[in-house]
Design a protein around this nucleic acid. Structure first.
Lengths: 216, 216
DNA sequence: ACCTGAACACCGTTCAAGT
DNA sequence: ACCTGAACACCGTTCAAGT
């Protein structure tokens, strides 16, 4: 065959095809050989564009995280900003749930992840949170988002409700059906997030009061 | 070689060796061949005890989850019970962080996971939570635990702090050093959990009040 | 410059054969 | 009953060779 006049491959085409494979069949479904086949090419050709499979995954991860919006932290309302960021974060991850286990492995040197972490930390500190608390809040919120997308509670159950109904009297309800999975997961996340932020607000007022007492 | 007088293998020996491999080198480090070598045996021998690698992983997962204590739900203090369960859950997972991505994939048909979910749901309902809220609280708490163990916020950063300090002014603090990782993660989880439960308490009182008004 | 074919060192799993 | 050796269909990755 040899080389075609117009290049068959580009980082963008490879990346998009890889993400589609992951979305369709999970992380395990992505192999360099299958990906090459999808692109009408042999596996070694991919290595001219991405030196390793891991760098390809990193690039995809960056692309997904790039959709996370942190502009909300430009205003002073830390509660609203935290909620908006969390929902945006969750939306980006939930769009590609099969990739989340890889994302969970850590920000590493990914530019966008760092930019996000920096924006969140800066926003919280500007709003009046002590730096250490800002770090913890960022980490905790990330936990919440990762947990709710990596381990879909309801999708995890088997479809045959009868399996549970007999032996686990408290479960086996309608809300365990696969069809309601997304709704349960979303509602669970909303509950966790609002309760979390409400709890933080109490703590914030305590900090604020201490600060005011010291000033007088 | 042939068959030794005393069987070399047992499900228990295989399982323990596999978990040790995972703890040492991560999920990717566990291959049937390496595991067999560790046990002084050839890979096909393992298949007499576990029909597939996945069933082996399931068994290991069950073992780890079995350490989670739900006896706290026998009392009526749902706040204490939820906190105790969450910490016990987190302890079990944090003891084997490399296994968490697998655990996150869902309870499936694992006995223990179902028993835990059932105990939590039952305990919350007995304490006065509506069934749907009980489901959501269970899912949300699981999210929190999974998120905080699957994606260690601080371990995710590279060790070279200089990488961040220049470009991300709000980060690059001492608390990003690898040495403080565990402390940050634990504190982040504690913050998330207490804030979450505090927030739930507010919601619970609202439910309680509505119920009382209806009664009179 | 870009792609192929063959190869290397790995996988999970099966199966006939040995004791 | 329990383990081995060889094999099958896969991996990620390298590299000389083709156009």
């Amino acid at each position: 065959m040899g080389r075609p006049k117009v290049p068959l491959l580009s980082r963008e085409r490879i990346r998009d095809a890889a993400l589609e494979l992951i979305d369709r069949g999970g992380l395990a479904e992505l192999s360099m050989r299958k990906l090459a086949a999808e692109l009408g090419v042999q596996a070694p050709s991919l290595y001219k564009h991405y030196p390793t499979k891991d760098e390809l995954l990193d690039d995809i991860a960056g692309l997904v995280i790039a959709d996370v919006d942190t502009s909300c932290f430009e205003h002073d309302d830390w509660r609203g900003a935290l909620a908006a960021w969390a929902w945006s974060y969750r939306g980006a991850l939930a769009a590609h749930p099969n990739l989340v286990p890889y994302l969970a492995a850590g920000p590493g040197r990914r530019e966008v992840s760092l930019r996000v972490a920096d924006a969140v930390h800066g926003g919280l500190v500007r709003a009046g949170w002590p730096p250490r608390d800002a770090t913890l809040i960022g980490a905790a919120t990330r936990s919440l988002v990762l947990g709710s997308t990596v381990g879909s509670f309801s999708r995890g159950f088997v479809d045959d409700v009868q399996v549970y109904r007999d032996r686990y009297p408290h479960m086996g309800q309608a809300h365990l059906l696969r069809g309601k999975a997304d709704e349960i997961d979303t509602a669970g996340f909303e509950l966790a997030l609002t309760a979390f932020i409400d709890g933080l607000a109490v703590r914030f007022e305590a900090i604020d009061e201490r600060r005011n007492r010291r000033r007088h």
